[in-house]
Design a protein around this nucleic acid. Structure first.
Lengths: 264, 264
DNA sequence: GCATCGAGTATACGGTGTACACTCCAGGCA
DNA sequence: TGCCTGGAGTGTACACCGTATACTCGATGC
């Protein structure tokens, strides 16, 4: 069986960017981002590692395209005529859904490198829509930023939801990780009962419509908010903060994860 | 000079978790997360790579502690008597500041593994404060989630702000990356003028007080929002989405980053 | 029939996290 | 004072990573 990929090049299904990308996404979905390896990707495609570099200049380029694939590629033009708030909610809900289905690519969002044309096109359409709705540019920018941040942060936080005791799902959850979660969540000895309760509640009740409700709340809040006063910056100027991080030396011993259990 | 660290163990400044952590943060700040290497960390500390494993069981454990250090360690008890909204704003502003000062650790936030005790303590205090303010538990959870998501997303999005043409700063911005940014932003040939304008505006005008204004807008919006109706999930159910990602095959060729410029 | 070209291969290199066995040195105790 | 012990730090080794370089084919144009 499997006459493919040894010496004779069978050319059955030639390599291509979409094929590589699809395989890469599948690997990232099942094995996480650190499981996504050029060699493994090649193996999955029945090909040598270097063959991939015929189509992508680097692994980084593949990851960039992954972001684009997940964040950028869906069709929201089909209800352009809906109320603009609904359109916005739908767009962000789709973005959230894509990220929730492929959580492995979330860490990539924070890299400036990863702004592909597809993702950009979606953002451009959102801003365009704000303009059509008559929002002043600076209000549109503010709303854009707030909704975008909420969406990205919301999917980032899903890792927190899995904190609660009943967290399940084989999504790269090693036994060790599961034990750490349980240590936080289990029973009355948890030092963070409210966090655990909130995580549990979010995990079991936070679905699409809660996210959309959050979007609507933010839209309402931002549109109702007074313009930002220049001048004093309330919070940051009020407290003289003794940050222990950064450039100043760490004075107190840093409390670390629960304890060194290295048996040897 | 430098009699240290060859054969004779000078024991001048013995290794310790805080010392390792501080060095690791410094490396991450200057060289990015991918520049943070056990070997480089050891070198910076004048020590062998394996010496570090006496104090941390793995590199992952170090990264976890880094998150804790940046996100968890600041003192907000000094104004516990302030209005609760102000307290909340200050707390989140400090969190944001820490993350902005050490953007390298942002990708770590989306890993479920990385919930250390210090970070947890801060979250617990926030939820506690919500309770004291008389918020119903489900409202508190919702507000907590929204503010948290906004904060994390806001720092994640800072990479987008650097999109605009004038982006500077040597923060691991390679020449290649800078060129890619310029390609997006420069002049009228940009295909995404609104995104570039918004990024530019955010980069030059979005400071602490705008972030805090966003926090206040969100608090207002969430508190004023109607309870989430169960039943129909508006956006997601309204559209039959032809996602090209995920399990279905990629039909159309995926538009990728601007062009294959592999000269050979 | 032959040159060309491009997709895929083979090999190699430097760098990564970390397992394992070791070498010291400080301290307790005779 | 001298020995013993345990832990901090070293040295070496391994499997794996991304990718540069040089190659080998098979299809294609003349």
């Amino acid at each position: 069986m499997r006459t493919a990929a040894k010496k004779a090049r069978p050319r059955a299904t030639p390599l291509s960017r979409p094929r590589i990308l699809r395989a890469a996404l599948a690997i990232a979905d099942t094995a996480g981002l650190e499981g996504l390896t050029v060699r493994r990707l090649a193996q999955e495609l029945g090909v040598t590692a270097m063959a991939i570099y015929r189509h992508y200049e680097s692994k980084d380029a593949i990851e960039r395209s992954l972001v684009d694939l997940v964040v950028g590629d869906y069709d929201v033009t089909s209800h352009d005529d809906a109320d603009w708030r609904e359109w916005i909610c739908t767009t962000y809900a789709l973005m959230r859904r894509g990220l929730c289905e492929h959580p492995a690519i979330i860490p990539l969002l924070s890299k400036a490198t990863y702004a592909g044309s597809d993702a950009m096109a979606v953002l451009e359409r959102v801003l365009c829509r704000f303009g059509e709705a008559g929002l002043a540019p600076h209000v549109a920018t503010r709303l854009f930023h707030t909704l975008m941040a909420y969406t990205i942060g919301s999917v980032t936080l899903r890792s927190l939801e899995s904190l609660h005791a009943g967290a399940r799902g084989p999504r790269a959850a090693s036994q060790q990780l599961r034990e750490r979660r349980l240590e936080f969540a289990r029973g009355p000895r948890s030092r963070y009962p409210r966090v655990v309760a909130a995580a549990s509640h979010l995990a079991s009740h936070f679905e699409g419509r809660h996210f959309e409700a959050g979007l609507r709340a933010i839209i309402g809040g931002v549109l109702a908010a007074p313009p930002v006063r220049s001048g004093r910056c309330a919070a940051e100027s009020r407290i003289s903060l003794p940050r222990s991080a950064a450039s100043m030396p760490v004075s107190a011993p840093v409390a670390c994860v629960p304890g060194r259990d290295r048996s040897d």
